[in-house]
Structure formats: C-alpha cells, structure tokens
Write a protein that binds this DNA or RNA. Structure first.
Length: 587
RNA sequence: GGACCGGUAGUUCAGUUCUGGUUAGAACGCCGCCCUGUCACGGCGGAGGUCGCGGGUUCGAGCCCCGUCCGGUCCGCCA
C-alpha cells in the first residue's frame, strides 16, 4: 500500500521526506505529539518528539486545520502500532523541521465523519464542507465522469463546440434568466435554457457530430434533482436515426458505469410512453419498484358504486388499482390518504384481503358494502389477490389519478422497503405524444417544438392529440437522465407544428426567424439527446440531491448562502442599464 | 403561489404538544492544567444561550396564538 498524494510507503523507510497539508487531528500526549496531516484524500501521521525542542513548542500550539509543512525521517511504526485504516499506516514522519503556513480558527462545524452538520451551515462555509472526504470524492467522481464522457465522444468523432451563454430569450418553455444590455439600452439577452437551436444550426453548418458539456439555466423552482443552473451532456448528429442516437447513448452510459462503478448494466429495455403511463402512471418509472398499476375500469362499468362507475365510463377518467402484501394500520392509511391528497386525489379507497375464501366477510374495507359479490370476485381474479394483501384504488380525473398513484406507488415501495437500492434499472421511454393539452385546452409540445413526428402531416392536422413524436427519454431508477428526439429539418413541417401550437407566422418569425431561415439553406436530417450530468453524478455517487455533487450549489430558494447571491445592486448600476426597480421592500 | 417538516450553546440534538412556572440540559468542539505510542487518545477543571425574528395572550412564554425570515421535502412550475 502506498499513498498517492504523499507518495510514501514502507519502502521509503529511512529516507527524509517533506510533507505538507492540513492538520486533520492533533493528539498531544504531553510528551509526544501526533499529527494526522491531510492533503486531498490522503493522510499521514507526523510524530513530534520532545527531543526536537524548537519545533516541539511550536507543535504544542498547532490546532486542527492549520496548514503546515514538516520534514523528517520516514520510519516504520513500532510493532503493533500500525494503523490499517490509513493508507500510510505502516509508517510515520518523525519531524525535525516544522513550518506553519497558515493558522486556522476553530471551524464553524466539525468535518469529521462522526459529526453531521446541517445543510445551511455547510453551504455557508462550502469551502470547508468540500474538505470532507465525501464531498471531495463526489467532485473527483464528477471530474472523472466528465472526462470519460469527453473522451468517449471525441473518440467517436464528436466535435466539442461552445455555444453562447448570452443569447436570445425564448418565451416558450421555462422562464428565462435575463441579462440587461447596456450597449443596447432597453434590450435583454437571456441565459440559455439549453443550446437547442445552436446545436441544430451546427447541423446546418455541416458538423455531423456535435457535443458539449453545457451549462444551462432555467428560472423555475428547485427540487432535489433540479436547480436553476445545471449541466447537460448535449449531443446532436446529422444523417442519423433514433436507433443510432439511442445506441450511442446506451453505449456511453454502459461504459461509464463500467469504468466508474465497475457495474455491468444489461441491455436497456424500451417501453412506450403509453405503456409506461398505464403500468406506472409516470413517464419516469422506477423499475426497481415491483408494484404496478392495473386498469380495472372493465370491472365496474355497471357498478352501483358511483365513485368507481363514473370514472369507469369516462374517457377522461382513470380507475386503477395496485396491490401489495403489507401489514398496514388505519392511521397509516390516513397518512397515505393525505399523501395522495397533495396531488388532488379526493380519497384513497382500499381493501384488505383477510380471507380470500370468504368474499363476503374476508374482505375488509369501507367500500366493500357498495360492491357486488361478482365485482369483488372479478377483482380478486383480475389482480390475483391473496390473503394478507392490500389493494388501493385511484379513481377519477386521469391526470390526478396517474400523478397521485404513481407517487403513491413509489412512496409505498420506499416505506415498505421493496426497492433494491443496490440495483440499476435503466429504461428507454419511447413514442412520446407530440403534444400535451394545457388546462386551457391548447396544445403544448410534449418535448419541444422542433421535435419530428412519426405521424403523417395529415394525422397531425386532424387529430394532433394522437400524434406520436420521435422522442425518447432515458430513465434510471426513477430519474430522467436524459431525453432527445429527431428534429424537424423541413421548413414546411416546422411551420405546420408552429401553427398547431398556435404560434403565428409573425410570431415564429420574430422568435425563431434566424432558425427558420437556416432551414432553407440545406438542413440535413438530424437528431440528438441531452443528459443531465448532475443527476448522473448524483445517482452514481449514491447521493440524494444534486447539491451534493455540485461544488457551489443554490438553495431551494435559489440563493447561494456563501456569496449571498443574488443581491441588490446600486442605483448607479441600474441607471446604466436604464432599469428602475418597482420592488418595494416590506419591513 | 400552496402544503408539510425543521430552526434551542460553535456544531448535532434533548427540552416544546396533550400539561406555560425558580438557575434551559447532553454530546462533540473550544479554553486551561496534566499526560511519551496515540490514531474518534485519555484525565481533571472551565467558559459558552437574543431558545431565528416581530407582535400578541398571560401574573408568567423556548413551550400557546398570529405574522415573518431561513433551511429542507413536495404540489404548481420545469418547451
């Protein structure tokens, strides 16, 4: 065993070495002082003996996190005094020279593995938090992942091209971060939500394989896997197909996992968006979760139970059931009723299966009295119910049922420990619908407005809600790792999509004129994909939040606790930009 | 914009509700003294608190009520 950073091992015994770093820990025995010296992830023990009179008095005043340099003899530790937990545990440096580069105040929180500082203080003193081995390892892994992705794509002939960070606002999609222009008074740049149009234009420019590890910005509220600035592995190719893009992507992810985690991922299954919604209620299913949703509309079409009968007979409604074998209390069910209530569900019907042989008395539930014996028998048969199982129902508005039941499915699996946390379950979701319907009844792109459709222009025109796009997402353990599509390369088709989206010719010209014009100068068929790098690192580092794999992240309220950004600016600065704030401070 | 959880010593937490009542505790860290083989060193002693902030109820509030700020999880939002 030898140490990478200090480059010391038992073979250096007898040599003189100079080591520098941070004081991880001082153990002052009065007579002899031990110092664990840290640099990056490495530790080495320094011994200061009282015979070294000058440095001993200095050493007596050394505290944790001082930055020092010592020189001295590398020697084998006494028999039985080796520390097997330490890389350099067989040896120690017996100091005869000691220099203090920098003292340290006591830290606002302890860095050792036995303490557990809160996120607020960790973020305020992020530079200290990053000294901790966990954070150090995460950022090193992030660097390795970055590096691997670059090498992989470059080897495949992709060209890494930067696109602007100061660009044009795009009112579609997420809210833009705006940058006021001083030179062009009254006008604004925007930070890119993604390099989408630029990478498509690079296809027009004849770069047939482009990639970029690109910072993107979206002014929307945060989640544990979302913050206002994030990093995408952005890829685009011309003269390609869905299959080729998915193959390259899969190859990239498989090799990445092999290289970094020594994990072999099996061939990624593909399921359609429709199937995913039916079985899991979401387009980013966690396939580690064994629970699936069952459509039970057919069982209750003629039911006397209105709560089931109405949705069973309504196109825009859903009636689904899920089952699992658990012991569950009344109060837990109440908790879950509240949980699905967050998604708009009005209730959570359930049936406990106590004795399958007695349909009348063996099923325990507030709703069995409303259901006929035949309905119950059919339910038992359809769901293959067994004693000890509980069935939960979601009934009503399609979106509410799917949102609530998919979240509930995941919550149950987590609460009852049904998920193998060590496993990796990637899945491609394909055949997304072209459009989603907004609450106002208008169409909005399910991916983005440049996505090519598998459906004919005719079908797009007549029943756009049925149109399928050439879009695909890669989902891993319930997280959307990336998504992409084939793009429209024909100007007429692009205009058609804009018109279906309710974007007028004038509006399209004003917002995307440069892009539409480019389509008129020889645009190759093309497509691409973008991966969320932060999420990939988060999952690979086994962290719960992307904040733990970002060196200087934002909080939930989009602030940086270390720098206090965002902050006020002076009126002079605003005047330069012709900006006047209407914000009124409350006491 | 909304729901929920949290905010008490430098840090991590207990105390808080049902039940408001003298001087708000613990551990780690910090400071002092002692200690020559520790490695989460050990021993003895000590300092350290605007109970997030503001208001209210009360004879009396860390505890009850209202508001607000900060952190987190989620809904909305995220083409």
């Amino acid at each position: 065993m030898s140490s990478k950073i200090f480059n010391l091992s038992i073979s250096d015994e007898g040599k003189t070495a100079t080591v520098s770093g941070w004081v991880e820990k001082v153990r002052d025995h009065g007579g002899v002082i031990f110092i664990d010296l840290r640099k990056d992830l490495d530790l080495v023990q320094v011994v200061i003996e009282p015979s070294e009179k000058e440095i001993f008095t200095v050493a007596e005043n050394i505290k944790n996190e001082f930055v020092i340099e010592v020189s001295g003899l590398v020697r084998k530790r006494p028999d039985g005094k080796e520390n097997t937990k330490m890389n350099t545990g067989e040896i120690e440096v017996c100091a005869n020279k000691l220099h203090v580069f920098s003292k340290s105040k006591p830290l606002p929180f302890q860095l050792d593995e036995y303490s557990n500082a809160g996120e607020e203080i960790r973020l305020k003193y992020r530079y200290l938090d990053l000294r901790r081995p966990e954070m150090h390892e995460n950022l090193i892994m992030r660097s390795e992942i970055n590096n691997f992705v670059r090498n992989f794509l470059v080897k495949k002939g992709f060209v890494d091209i930067d696109t602007p960070m100061m660009t044009k606002a795009t009112p579609e999609g997420a809210r833009d971060f705006l940058i006021p222009s001083r030179v062009n008074q009254g006008k604004f740049y925007a930070l890119p939500q993604s390099p989408q149009l630029f990478k498509q234009l690079l296809m027009v420019s004849g770069f047939s394989k482009y990639f970029q590890i690109a910072r993107c910005f979206r002014d929307e509220d945060t989640r544990k896997d979302r913050q206002p600035e994030f990093t995408q592995i952005d890829i685009e190719m011309s003269f390609t197909s869905c299959e080729e893009i998915m193959n390259i992507s899969e190859d990239l992810i498989v090799k990445l996992f092999k290289k970094i985690l020594k994990v072999d991922l099996v061939k990624f299954p593909k399921i359609t968006h429709k199937e995913s919604m039916e079985k899991y209620g979401t387009d980013k299913p966690d396939l580690r979760n064994p629970i699936i949703l069952h459509d039970v509309k057919d069982l209750f079409i003629d039911s006397n139970f209105k709560v089931f009968k109405d949705p069973a007979n309504d196109e825009k409604s859903k009636l689904v059931a899920l089952k699992l074998k658990i012991d569950i209390s009344r109060s837990q069910i109440d908790e879950y009723t509240k949980f699905v209530g967050n998604f708009g569900a009005k209730g959570l019907a359930y049936i406990k299966v106590n004795d399958i042989s007695d349909i009348e008395k063996g099923l325990q539930s507030p709703i069995v009295k409303f259901l006929s014996k035949t309905e119950l028998q059919n339910l038992v048969k359809k769901l293959d119910l067994n004693n000890g199982e509980v069935v939960f129902f979601g009934a009503g508005n399609k979106k509410i049922v799917l949102d609530s039941m998919s979240a509930f499915r995941q919550k149950l699996a987590e609460d009852f420990d049904l998920i193998d946390k060590t496993s990796w379950k990637p899945v491609w979701i394909t055949d997304f619908p072209m459009f989603d319907e907004t609450s106002e009844g208008t169409l909005t792109p399910s991916h983005h407005p440049f996505t090519k459709s598998l459906s004919t222009l005719d079908l797009l025109e007549k029943s756009p809600e049925q149109a399928i796009s050439e879009a695909y997402d890669l989902v891993l353990n319930g997280f959307e790792l990336g998504g992409g599509s084939m793009r429209i390369h024909d100007i007429e088709e692009q205009k058609k999509i804009f018109s279906l989206l309710g974007i007028s010719n004038e509006e399209a010209k004003q917002k995307f004129g440069f892009f539409l014009e480019a389509l008129e100068y020889g645009c190759p068929p093309h497509g691409g994909i973008a991966f969320g790098l932060d999420r990939i690192v988060m999952l690979m580092a086994n962290e719960d939040s992307i904040r733990d794999v970002i060196a200087f992240p934002k909080t939930q309220s989009a602030m940086c606790l270390m720098t206090d950004a965002p902050d006020k600016v002076s009126n002079d600065e605003l005047e330069d930009l012709s900006i006047k704030s209407t914000f009124e401070e409350t006491e």
